[in-house]
Design a protein around this nucleic acid. Structure first.
Length: 567
RNA sequence: CGGGAUGUAGCGCAGCUUGGUAGCGCACCUCGCUUGGGACGAGGGGGUCGCAGGUUCAAAUCCUGUCAUCCCGACCA
């Protein structure tokens, strides 16, 4: 321990918020180099290697093969797939000395597709599943929470190639099972939830979420307690328990509504419910205005809106922009009359509305008793709310926070088609590969384990991913007998394949105990005064349980626990 | 990019209002003493006060600009 490259801190770092971030810095696992960019110090490196190894073992068992692709990628490949333009600012671009455009890899679909195209030429070679552990760089708008969202991070990314959708689906299932086992072995309970596929693309995708009680999770997950439906809020759908809403206003009539700007004001003013009002919200999608008509009590889910409009960037319109496009301040606008000027989206929450209230498209006026006319295409762009009904079984949905540690996608031919990556089928025809893609955030998984396993004293590593299994502490290193017993235990553990540290520092016992708890060694063997009676103290970090026993018993106990991991 | 805050030693902070030789705790080095839950004493090393301008006899302190970091929203493993 006196030689270990680690410096623990007495205080939590000022600039950290998430528990995993605070503990990793304080216990000497990581060092920040720049915003969202960290060095993994020796303790951290050991943890990461263990998470990697578990992942590697399970993927190999599932039939995948490991390779390694470059961190720096040529723009050319991204231009072929069409993502050089579409990926946006998260892609860090640069030029080499010959003025050739390059980027730091945020993901590797382009590279793997290019590789596969040269090698997988026949249907006889398929299916194939390839994966790697690699640094990724995404120039995130706002990195935060330490390793939970860095700009540079370590990811396991895997890609599979198939000749049929059926084969892809089988592999997708296979990977889902492997993922579950990987996270279990890392000491993490995960929930597999439906999700939006974002910039990676494809139709079907699921996320593996570590559910958290704290606010540290960045995603809201909706789930049903009655059936197994669960989905990220950016993808969740629900059935409204008040799908049909109506009012007593059975005749269209303009009403003067001065100083009534919000839905709440309007509902009170007219003595109706918020779900009787058709709300107009304006967004700017890729610099163009889009108006969303949505039931008054519902909110717009921006990812869904982005998907529906096929856009890349989205934000709410400012008051000035609303003025520019509708000629009035927000609060009184409506879609009528604007159909030919701007894009209008009707959310499905509005479908069952009768005799509703709507902006009059002139300042200080609304219209009541309105009904939809003609054929209107309703689409889902709204955010689910807790308590709305499960789309599968009609029971109420619940919401919780989650950290996304893994993600699997059915890509189809999204990359193989534009990149002209073909194989030859039984009939001699060229066909694009049908692809799948599978990611695990290695650094994020390690950090999530801390979010789930810690106490007021420090980290409580699951044994499988702890940097070391055990620490041996002679209370007083000056005491020859204590030193001798500790050294003997240390050597024996090491001989039996246990990863062990001897705390040979001259510090007082308190310092060593505090550090042991902070760093999170799963087991601590203390050689104190009782060595005179041939006894040591055995502490289990997770339970806090302290037992007095002989050195041999302690060694056996640790060896037994470590061997369980292998079994 | 919008809103809020902060930059002084490796870490945590004071000093700034009212300009006048840069401080405290932890960590680090030496010696002594101590050894079951972050001891104690003595001595010591370490900072162009984020950076650049300006005001002034004199700037960590006042003014302007700039950069960086953190927190809240859009991005995602």
């Amino acid at each position: 321990m006196s030689k270990l490259f680690v410096q623990t801190l007495r205080d939590f770092p000022q600039d950290a918020d998430a528990m995993s971030h605070k503990l990793l810095v304080r216990a000497g696992y990581i060092k920040k180099i720049a915003n969202g960019i960290y060095s993994y110090l020796p303790l951290m490196q050991r943890v990461l290697k263990k998470v990697e190894q578990i992942t590697r073992e399970e993927l190999n068992k599932a039939g995948a093969q490991e390779l390694l692709m470059p961190f720096v990628q040529p723009a050319e490949l991204w231009q072929k797939s069409g993502r050089w333009g579409a990926y946006g600012k998260e892609l860090l671009r640069m030029k080499d000395r010959h003025d050739v455009e390059l980027c730091l890899g945020p993901t590797h679909e382009e590279v793997i597709t290019y590789i596969a195209d040269g090698i997988l030429t026949s249907y006889r070679q398929l299916p194939v599943n390839l994966y790697q552990f690699q640094l990724k760089f995404r120039d995130e708008i706002r990195p935060r929470f330490g390793l939970l969202r860095g700009r540079e991070f370590i990811m396991k990314d895997g890609y599979s190639f198939h000749t049929s959708q059926k084969s892809l689906e089988e592999e997708y299932e296979n990977m889902a099972k492997a993922y579950k086992r990987i996270f279990e072995r890392c000491g993490l309970d995960t929930k597999m939830v439906q999700s939006d596929s974002g910039a990676i693309g494809g139709k079907v995708s699921h996320e593996f979420m570590v559910l958290t009680k704290t606010q540290t999770g960045e995603d809201d997950v909706f789930y049903c307690q009655n059936c197994d439906y669960s989905a990220n809020s950016n993808h969740a759908v629900s059935i409204l328990d008040d799908e049909i809403t109506t009012t007593a206003f059975n005749k269209e009539e303009e009403i003067h509504t001065p100083n009534v700007k919000t839905i709440k004001d309007l509902a009170e003013f007219l003595n109706v419910k918020e779900n009787n009002i058709l709300k107009s919200v304006m967004y700017i999608v890729d610099s163009k205005p889009v108006m969303v008509m949505i039931r008054g009590d519902k909110e717009v889910e921006e990812t869904k809106l982005l998907n529906v409009t096929g856009g890349l960037e989205i934000r709410k319109a400012t008051d000035d922009e609303v003025l520019e496009y509708t000629g009035m301040e927000p609060g009184y606008m409506s879609y009528s009359g604007l159909e030919n000027k701007i894009k209008i989206i009707f959310d499905k929450s509005a479908k069952g509305m009768k005799n509703f209230i709507i902006g009059a498209n002139k300042p200080e006026y609304h219209i009541k008793g309105v009904n939809f006319k003609g054929d209107i295409n309703f689409v889902d762009v709204s955010l689910v709310k807790e308590g709305e009904l499960c789309p599968v079984c009609n029971k109420p949905l619940f919401v919780t926070r989650g950290i996304e540690v893994g993600n699997i996608f059915q890509l189809g031919t999204k990359y193989s088609e534009p990149m002209k990556a073909y194989y030859t089928d039984e009939n001699g025809q060229n066909k694009p590969y049908i692809m799948g893609c599978y990611g695990i955030g290695i650094t994020r998984t390690a950090a999530s384990a801390i979010e789930k396993h810690h106490d007021e004293f420090g980290i409580i590593w699951p044994l499988a991913i702890a940097p070391y299994h055990c620490v041996v502490v002679p209370v007083n290193i000056q005491d020859e007998l204590q030193k001798e017993v500790a050294l003997k235990i240390y050597n024996e553990l090491q001989n039996k394949g246990v990863e062990v540290v001897l705390d040979d520092r001259e510090d007082r016992a308190g310092v060593k105990f505090k550090d042991a708890d902070l760093i999170g060694f799963p087991f601590r063997i203390t050689a104190g005064k009782t060595v005179q009676d041939g006894l040591i103290e055995f502490k289990t970090r997770q339970t806090g349980e302290v037992v007095t026993m002989t050195p041999d018993e302690a060694v056996n106990k640790v060896v037994e626990e470590v061997n369980k991991l292998k079994g």
